[in-house]
Amino acid sequence: MAARTEQDVVRSELRWSIVVGLTVGAISLAILWAGLVRFINPPSNIETIDPNSVHLSAEFNEANLGTRVENGQVVTRVVATQFSFAPQCVVVPANRQVTLRFTSPDVIHGILVTGTNVNTMVVPGYVAQVHSVFRKTGDLLMPCHEYCGLGHSQMWATVRVVPEDDFKPDADGRALCEKP
């Protein structure tokens, strides 16, 4: 390119700045569109819980863990703790919105469900909440993806996605993983 005078240099830089501006603008618009129009937002419910009494809380006591249908909504509650999940397997119906709620009584954990976009940190002191619709049936892995101590590698659970017709909660609305 012509760079004989300083004006040439500045002109070329201004042209490039326009390209940069358009690129950055396009990226920002795409993200804005996903957030505002498609409601693709990260899990951000600032909802606190005392980590030292999780097992005594109304929501995360042992009897209330796992999947339950509440007012037509499927809600799955899991406690992530060094070095396992409670429960180790949860069942969810395919093609229905599922609300997953997690908390930790000890240290930082995190989960993802393989083959889906379900992903959240599980931070002691907070309830992490993710909404998702599982399209494919079968067993999915739900490992802990954040370092939580020497047993971290052994910490994983199963999400069992069953066809909607096979999803049969009991009278109390609860559904359990059956032995395969």
């Binding site: 690129t23 950055v24 899990p43 951000s44 600032i46 909440q129």
Partner: peptide
Amino acid sequence: LFMDPEHSTGFKFLQMTLTVLVTV
């Protein structure tokens, strides 16, 4: 901290917007 439960979407979005500018 996008996947963290202790911050709101508002501040995550603000810092994301500033992050885009790092590409400049």
